[in-house]
Amino acid sequence: MNSTRTRVWQCIVCGFVYDEAKGLPEDGIAAGTRWEDIPEDWACPDCGVAKADFEMQLLAA
């Protein structure tokens, strides 16, 4: 789908980890979904912080 490697992100408020390779299937986000492609109205499943408020921190590329 994309040529770049998947990345791992962390919510700066609660530490929740989003791994692009795994996605969040239970949240309707398919494996391989890049952070940029997650809808703007998405919120961190653990703490409710909106995507627009707290850019996730890049943990690993």
Binding site: C11, I12, V13, C14, G15, C47
Partner: peptide
């Protein structure tokens, strides 16, 4: 800072 991260 993220307080929840204090315990990890």
């Amino acid at each position: 800072y993220s307080k929840p991260m204090l315990s990890t």
